[in-house]
């Protein structure tokens, strides 16, 4: 009983504490770099699309709001033919970013994306792609992936040996 009264008293004292409310449109909020907001597709240091259309973000998405189709250019470099996020379904959980093996898909600190029509919340690749490397500057998937997709030749990537000369029997 006494503890109840004490609780009530303590709660009552909050009347004289500082308000935590931020008066949003007039006052802007300070968002952290790792804040999970708008989803973007980034580019690698050479300006190429980072997304290789591996479908892992789509598979990780708990609300299945990512749909894409992978395709290849003449060098064998994969990129998404279309990449669609239905933001009217997105819950900004960030699993897609975690799943992305190429740092292509990133959630950025921007949440001001309300629309009057739901249809306008369906973002295509053109709406998602930004001309920036986002949070991971300097990373280029094809430099470490081994295969030759027009970015570097076989054996020229990071931590790779020159291609094997299969005609040679030397160790």
């Amino acid at each position: 009983m006494l503890s109840h009264l004490r609780t009530m008293w303590l709660v009552f004292l909050h009347l004289f504490h500082k308000r935590e409310t931020i008066q949003y449109p007039e006052e802007k909020i300070q968002l952290h770099p790792r804040w999970r907001g708008r989803i973007v597709l980034t580019k690698d240091p050479d300006g190429g699309e980072r997304c290789v259309g591996c479908y892992l973000c789509a598979a990780a998405c708990p609300v299945d709001c990512i749909a894409l189709q992978a395709t290849e250019d003449e060098d064998g470099r994969r990129y998404p033919e279309f990449f669609r996020i239905n933001f009217s379904r997105c819950i900004f959980c960030g699993y897609c970013e975690e799943a992305c093996p190429t740092y292509a898909i990133q959630l950025i600190p921007d949440f001001e994306m309300a629309e009057y029509k739901r249809q306008d919340l369906v973002f295509e690749k053109e709406d998602l792609l930004i001309d920036s490397q986002g949070k991971y500057p300097g990373y280029n998937f094809y430099k470490v992936a081994g295969l030759d997709a027009g970015v570097k030749e076989k054996g020229k990537g990071d931590n790779e040996e020159e291609p094997v000369d299969i005609k040679s029997l030397l160790p």
């Binding site: 479908y55 789509a58 598979a59 998405c61 609300v63 299945d64 709001c65 990512i66 749909a67 894409l68 669609r84 996020i85 239905n86 009217s88 379904r89 739901r118 249809q119 919340l121 369906v122 295509e124």
Partner: peptide, 16 residues
């Protein structure tokens, strides 16, 4: 069981 894109694959036509 891990079919993806259910809510996005047709959303370019209609969001519902």
């Amino acid at each position: 069981h891990r079919y993806s894109g259910r809510t996005a694959m047709l959303s370019n036509l209609a969001v519902s």
